[in-house]
Nucleic acid binder design. Structure first.
Lengths: 335, 335
DNA sequence: ACAGCGGATGTCAACGTTGACATATGTCAA
DNA sequence: TTGACATATGTCAACGTTGACATCCGCTGT
């Protein structure tokens, strides 16, 4: 900047004024400055600028569990466009679903003095350490899953209601014994909520809850095995509800391998190939971009001085009917 | 930092020494400093630090076309772990496959004085504007597609060879008329390379190239339509090679809708559900995480002072045989 | 006893930018 | 003519940190 100023024969401050449209500058001076900027290929140093003004980095930090997962990728995409529209930069890190990595990422972001923090909590996280930052007024929003040990803004999908609707859909097609397959232990928020939705639907229809119809598999293969275990029961389910995309894929694999095209299936989370499957997969679709965008809006509102108490926003899900959920239960002795 | 120093009764410099393990500090002083740091909840300001030392931000900027696309997400994941292992932070932006957004993202990163730049070029990009930065010694690496108008480091998949191998696989199963479906116009590097691989395989086997077997569809539906057009030809192909994951999905949909389980299919890019399809999809799989990691290694090597000329690294692809590529051509009048 | 040395700490300036305030020049109304 | 005011620019300091160099102390060896 000093170089540019020298070139034009003015002070750095004048150059600063030109570049920031701040204060009065003679038209001729402005032009000469702009020309020198071009000539020297000058680019303002954002680091120095951020340090001077407000001592905050014009960036938002985002922690997600996995970059390769399209769900979180799309969430990040939603966050990014909203954030960029405000002239802020997005800094992303992935925690690999590990509390330790998550903490160290957050620490890095805080050390950079980001203007806001967005976190998809890792499964075993704990966010009490963020209390002081929150009190100090740093906008912090949690996505997809709420914070643990901290009252803070949060944007989640309508897990319970979506799950309820998916299971109710199966019930409305005559199913009375419906398996539930999800990947992760009960510590994961989304799993708990979706399981509640499953029970809500059963209760609403006056159907009994049968513990033996609930299975767990932490990845696709495990979910496939879990599905097969359900089918091998003495009194097997006629339909299955899967609590996330890996579980859905596993169930699809299992039904395909077992040649059981008669078992109805509804999955939580849409899959890119869902309509190509045989039968096409009926799903409860989330809207990850909307989750990201909503969270970003919350952060931006807080940046604008919104000091109201912590809010929880819920992004609706949508039942996409494609075929696999509409299979009727086989006509059995009792039906 | 001054607050901590005052608390302990030393100078900021001493606190700095403690925190950076730099220079001799009395054990007792160190402990008292650490305690004050904890007590005051002090966190060093990375922005100020970066500005002082080397005038470079301890971050790497990465531009990808789309966040939600698992291919680029996984690339970003590969980059991130490599970069973080070096204590650097990853800053990501998505260009939405737009040259304008790409440029403005790059400008932002340069203004932040990132230590390195990694770019997956948007389809219509032009990177001449980066020449001066490159000359100035900024590590710049292009991923998945080479730079346009600039000689620079680059990491790409073995598009041509992978494609050749995929088509050769079909040929080895007796196919002589093989359709080619890819999404994008000839300006896209990957499309050009994969098409060349297709022609290589034909030539290698002494098969004629038939222009009418080449179709274009820019998304899944378009690719499906393109596939149907191929099947409707007077002398239709007995096998199809698809040049990317959307094209593959489109082809799968088309074959499924047309009830043509006899048409062999090999696709470039693996799909999460490939093995669940009927028949399971044979693919030429890329290794996006390896692409990201290799690119990151290149940037880091440049940061370490490697000033050798621009390199191009090629990450191998892998043929994953699952069934759809092994269907024999129907016994026709001529075979 | 004293030079010399290494350990522990301090002082100062600088990184690039911009807020707060000051100065200089010109314009206009009283 | 003069003071009030707007316009155009300059001066200075500060943001938080650390490199370069200086200082002070006690200990060692002769």
């Amino acid at each position: 900047m000093t170089d540019v100023a020298r070139e034009v024969g003015v002070t750095a401050k004048t150059v600063s004024r030109v570049l920031n449209d701040d204060g009065p500058v003679a038209v001729e001076t402005r032009e000469r400055v702009m020309e020198a900027v071009r000539k020297l290929g000058y680019q303002p140093n954002l680091m120095a600028r951020n340090m001077r003004v407000g001592a905050r980095d014009a960036a938002i930090g985002l922690v997600i569990p996995e970059m390769g997962n399209p769900f979180f990728g799309t969430v990040a995409g939603g966050v990014e466009s909203a954030v960029r529209a405000r002239g802020l930069t997005l800094i992303v890190g992935s925690s690999d679903e590990t509390a330790g990595l998550e903490q160290s990422l957050i620490a890095t972001f805080l050390a950079r003095r980001v203007s806001g923090l967005m976190v998809v909590p890792a499964a075993a996280g704990d966010h009490r350490h963020l209390r002081s930052e929150r009190v100090a007024g740093l906008p912090i929003v949690f996505l997809d899953r709420p914070a643990v040990g901290l009252t803070a803004d949060c944007v989640v999908s309508a897990n319970r209601e979506g799950s309820r609707a998916g299971v109710a859909h199966l019930i409305s097609h005559g199913h009375r014994r419906i398996g539930f397959v999800a990947d992760v232990p009960a510590t994961l928020y989304t799993r708990r909520e979706r399981f509640q939705g499953y029970r809500d639907a059963l209760e609403e229809a006056g159907l009994p809850f049968d513990r033996s119809l609930v299975e767990t598999g932490h990845d696709m293969e495990a979910a496939a095995a879990a599905t097969l275990r359900l089918l091998a029961l003495a009194d097997p389910p006629t339909a299955v509800f899967t609590g996330n995309n890996f579980a859905s894929m596993g169930a699809v694999v299992a039904l395909s391998r077992a040649g059981r095209k008669d078992v109805a299936l509804v999955g939580f989370d849409d899959l890119p190939l869902a309509e190509v499957l045989d039968p096409p997969l009926t799903v409860v679709a989330q809207d990850p971009a909307a989750v990201g965008a909503a969270a970003a809006e919350l952060v931006l509102a807080r940046l604008d001085g919104d000091r109201s108490r912590a809010r929880r926003a819920t992004v609706p899900t949508r039942l996409i009917v494609r075929g696999s959920g509409e299979l009727p239960p086989p006509a059995g002795p009792r039906s």
